[in-house]
């Protein structure tokens, strides 16, 4: 229980101008995330869940509140702790763009909804997986290739396809390639935006299986945005339910799904079709 806090969000909010009206895409979101915890952010279109994800991953700046992360420096030690003697959490808004980009390439992963947005489509699968290592200075072709092969095995991709372009992969394979590409640097926190949406049901099942195993084996913390409650139940320890930019309910996944308190959560849960 003494794990260091990984991500701390306090009153995070983001607003947009629409015409001459101000609209809060998400507002007043607060939670803490610890290593190995998976948090599902659930809501329908327009709930603000994708905006929240982008705030957490520092792709958007908070207009209100803050997002703090336990940043480690290149040597793997807590940067803030050594610099300021605090608890180790650093406000993402204080980090330079260079640092944020480095963070996004090393300690974080981001799995996009459409694999094409998260992959380089014009280089081979192996190059996609090896890119982060090359960006960090890895310069041995043989070792890079070896790592790519082992990660392809781990995400159940046919290793014979290492030199094939991602465009020749199926949707499910592209997603798995995206996951491998993100995990090579052993990130502690992975953001996923609707990772299984749009895939065939059997492909979804296989991918969810893989994600469950990886989260378990690698002790990943993850924030998964999804509108599919079944995905939340399967993968997440905790849930955040969002409606119109606000968090209406949060807690243990099985508690929120089996004993929903808020009106909207009850509506969501009762609306799900079961075959």
């Amino acid at each position: 229980m003494n794990d260091d806090l990984l991500l701390s969000v306090r009153g995070a909010g983001k607003r947009f101008m629409q015409g001459n009206r101000l609209r809060w895409a998400c507002r007043d979101v607060s939670f803490d995330l610890y290593p190995g915890e998976v948090l599902a952010v659930v809501g329908e279109s327009g709930s603000g869940k994708s905006t929240l994800l982008r705030l957490l991953a520092a792709r958007l700046a908070c207009d209100e509140g803050s997002v703090h992360y336990d940043v480690r420096d290149e040597a793997g030690t807590a940067a803030a702790a050594s610099a300021a003697g605090e608890a180790g959490l650093v406000d993402l808004a204080q980090l330079s763009e260079a640092r944020l980009r480095w963070l996004a390439r090393t300690d974080w992963g981001f799995v996009e909804q459409h694999a094409r947005d998260g992959l380089r489509m014009n280089v081979s699968g192996g190059a996609n997986i090896g890119e982060r290592m090359m960006a960090l200075g890895s310069r041995h072709y043989g070792k890079l290739r070896g790592q790519a092969l082992s990660w392809m095995e781990r995400v159940e991709l046919d290793v014979d396809r290492i030199d094939d372009l991602p465009g020749t992969y199926s949707g499910g394979m592209q997603q798995r390639l995206q996951i491998a590409r993100n995990l090579v640097t052993h990130p502690r926190l992975v953001f996923m935006d609707e990772p299984t949406t749009g895939l065939d049901v059997s492909v979804q099942a296989r991918l969810l299986d893989l994600l469950r195993e990886l989260v378990d084996q690698l002790q990943l913390a993850a924030v998964i945005v999804t509108h599919d409650l079944a995905v939340a139940r399967l993968l997440a320890h905790r849930m955040l339910v969002m409606k119109d930019g606000q968090v209406v309910e949060q807690g243990l996944t099985d508690r929120v799904l089996d004993d929903p308190q808020h009106a909207y959560t009850q509506l969501l849960v009762s609306s799900v079709l079961t075959p």
Binding site: E97, A98, R101, R120, V123, S124, G126, A127, G130, E131, R132, M134, A135, L136, R139, Y141, L144, R145, I162, D163
Partner: peptide
């Protein structure tokens, strides 16, 4: 411009890797 500013040259290495692979 951003890549040069931040010395993020991984992309070039990716290209060289790809050449050797293909």
């Amino acid at each position: 411009i951003t890549m040069h500013a931040l010395a993020e040259y991984g992309l070039m290495n990716v290209k060289l890797y790809e050449d050797i692979a293909q």
